[in-house]
């Protein structure tokens, strides 16, 4: 009797899913067919852009109403992996790549050929003057620094990075690995840019470091799980906690030296097929509607001025930011800096 019941239950489950799978197969075959009829724009994007909470879906719907085209996203994980994929097979079709990080632009330009974009004269944010390039268009940004929770008796109030490196308790911070994460590159650049003795600063930071994770999300996840009192992250990380979790204990340490900025870019590789539509998509990312979606869904600041946003954006501290100086020098010295860091850590 029991065996009959189990058999019936399993058969029913298989039948139900069988019907579902049949529909799944038919639907995807139909979608493929539809895609073949319209102009397709293949967009390489990082995971955060295309996941269920990312801006990708909304941007796709908005853009597709303006053209006879369909956007097809390819989740490439990160900008570093996107560059690797494009460099490995330069002829493989990709129309747009989004999520290229500021500190990887030189590498991207060296390894992959990109098209020149239309002369974009969007009203950029003041802090992003000089951050727009012929082949790369910024679409969002955020200052970077140490995010922590208040109150925390163990963390002294510090007003500069130098003081932080000397006074913060040891093993109190989680960091992303500069070898595999652009967020990691950001703190490395920060030390490079602001320290008189970079090697010494790296050794001091190593003292403060509890863990180095392969990517930002693991590092931030450990911080959220209270494994560490602070982490290196975006200023705009506070927005998620304030808006979604209604938790204002999350704060940002402001330092007198200034903070590095993470800027995300879109570009059109030479391997594009529908290059004109691709360029229109990049242009579209700087429109008011797109900027609003990007800021709200990516939890980043808009690249363009005067975008109407939630009030919590206004509550974010106004921090001093570092410009583009010494970035080329940093990129050149990156491997040696990483070696010093590895030895220190």
């Amino acid at each position: 009797m029991q065996k009959k019941f189990v058999f019936f239950f399993l058969a029913l489950t298989v039948l139900a899913f069988g019907v579902g799978i049949g529909r799944f197969i038919l639907k995807t075959a139909r979608n493929s067919d539809n895609r073949r009829k319209l102009v397709t724009v293949v967009v390489y994007a990082p995971t955060s852009f295309v996941d269920s909470y990312g801006p990708g879906e909304d941007l796709k719907k908005m853009f597709e109403t303006t053209c006879d085209c369909t956007i097809v996203y390819v989740d490439v994980g990160s900008s570093r992996l996107a560059i690797d994929r494009m460099a490995f097979d330069p002829k493989k079709r990709v129309d747009v790549v989004v999520g290229l990080d500021l500190l990887l632009l030189k590498t991207a330009a060296t390894r992959v050929k990109f098209q020149e974009l239309n002369d974009l004269s969007a009203p950029w944010q003041d802090q992003l003057r000089g951050f727009s390039f012929r082949r790369f268009t910024p679409y969002d940004w955020s200052p970077m620094g140490f995010v922590y929770r208040e109150p925390n008796k163990d963390l002294p109030k510090v007003a500069s990075l130098e003081a932080a490196l000397n006074e913060l308790p040891e093993k109190s911070i989680s960091l992303a690995d500069p070898n595999s994460s652009t967020v990691g590159l950001e703190w490395l650049y920060w030390l490079f840019r602001t320290s008189t003795n970079v090697d010494e600063s790296l050794r001091k930071l190593a003292r403060l470091t509890y863990i180095v994770t392969p990517n930002w999300s693991a590092s931030y996840g450990l911080f959220k799980k209270h494994q560490v009192p602070m982490t290196f992250s975006y200023l705009t990380s506070l927005l998620y906690h304030w808006q979604v979790e209604k938790d204002h204990s999350y704060q940002f340490m402001q330092f007198s030296e200034g903070h590095p900025v993470q800027v995300e870019y879109a570009a059109v590789p030479e391997a594009c097929w529908d290059c004109a539509v691709a360029k229109n998509f990049v242009q579209f990312l700087t429109s008011v509607e797109a900027q609003k979606v990007l800021a709200q869904k990516n939890y980043m600041l808009p690249a363009v001025k005067n975008i109407p946003l939630d009030s919590s954006f206004e509550e974010l501290p106004k921090v001093k930011t570092l410009g583009l100086e010494k970035i080329d020098e940093f990129v050149t010295q990156q491997p040696q800096l990483i070696e010093v860091w590895k030895k220190a850590n």
Binding site: P46, T47, S48, V50, D51, S52, Y53, G54, D75, N215, S217, Y220, G221, K224, S237, Y240, V244, Y299
Partner: peptide, 11 residues
Amino acid sequence: TAHGLLAGYRS
């Protein structure tokens, strides 16, 4: 999908 969510804030 879970991997994508983990890459963001929504663990």
